Simulated assay, not measured.
Amino acid sequence: MPGGTSDLDKNRTPEQWLEWQLRQVRGRIRELEIKEQQEHRAQERAHAALRWKIQPQRSSLAALVHSGDCALHPVEGGFLTREEAMIDLAEPDIEPCQICNPETGLAYG
């Protein structure tokens, strides 16, 4: 169409605008998903920090009680409650981890 805007051009402009908006929304969704995942991991770490776990006895080494967020021993079989951890630490063949010092959390429970 001489001297004017064609129907094709009139439709390409909003198409480009909508594509830009869609990219913006998808980027924001990615940001929110990452934030949500980070918050979920933080909640899991906070929950684990309030629990305890036990490392079974191996060869001549004593069994160890760890705080729930201690990285030295992965959770095997779930977490212990405060009461269970205190009972375990009273046993002669079970010791606290010297790195995470799980007794600190037990003292304030």
Score class of each variant (00 low, 15 high):
His73Phe: 10
Glu36Arg: 12
Glu76Tyr: 04
Ala107Met: 03
Arg12Trp: 10
Asp69Trp: 00
Thr5Met: 02
Gln38Arg: 10
Leu106Ile: 12
Leu8Gln: 07
Gly77Ser: 05
Ile34Asp: 13
Glu103Cys: 10
Tyr108Ser: 15
Asp69Lys: 01
Gln43His: 11
Arg58Trp: 08
Leu61Arg: 09
Asn101Gly: 07
Val65Trp: 00
Glu95Asn: 06
Ala71Thr: 14
Ala90Gln: 11
Gly109His: 08
Met86Gln: 15
Ile94Trp: 00
Glu84Asp: 11
Leu18Thr: 14
Gly109Ala: 13
Met86Lys: 14
Gly105Leu: 03
Val75Pro: 02
Gly27Ile: 00
Gln37Ala: 14
Glu103Tyr: 03
Gln98His: 08
Val65Lys: 00
Gly4Arg: 01
Ser67Gly: 15
Gly68Tyr: 00
Ile87Pro: 01
Gly109Thr: 14
Gly109Ser: 11
Val65Thr: 06
Leu89Asp: 02
Tyr108Gly: 13
Lys53Arg: 06
Val65Cys: 01
Gln98Met: 09
Leu22Lys: 14
Leu8Ser: 09
Ala71Arg: 12
Glu39Val: 14
Leu72Phe: 13
Gln38Val: 05
Arg26Met: 05
Ser67Trp: 03
Arg30Tyr: 05
Leu80Tyr: 04
His47Trp: 03
Leu106Met: 09
Trp20Ser: 14
Gln21Val: 13
Ile94Leu: 01
Glu95Gln: 08
Ser60Thr: 10
Gln55Arg: 02
Gly3Gln: 08
Val25Gly: 04
Glu84Ser: 07
Ser59Gly: 06
Gly105His: 06
Pro14Arg: 07
Arg45Cys: 03
Ala42Pro: 02
Ala46Leu: 03
Ala48Lys: 07
Ser60Met: 03
Arg45Gly: 04
Pro102Trp: 10
His40Gly: 11
Ala71Leu: 07
Gln98Ala: 13
Glu76Pro: 02
Pro56Glu: 08
Pro56Ala: 13
Ile87Gly: 06
Pro74Tyr: 09
Gln57Trp: 01
Val75Ala: 11
Ile99His: 02
Gln24His: 07
Glu95Ala: 09
Glu83Lys: 05
Thr104Leu: 06
Thr13Trp: 03
Pro102Gln: 11
Cys97Gln: 10
Leu72Ser: 14
Glu44Tyr: 04
Asp9Trp: 01
Val75Trp: 00
Ala62Phe: 01
Glu33Asn: 11
Glu31Gly: 07
Arg28Asp: 14
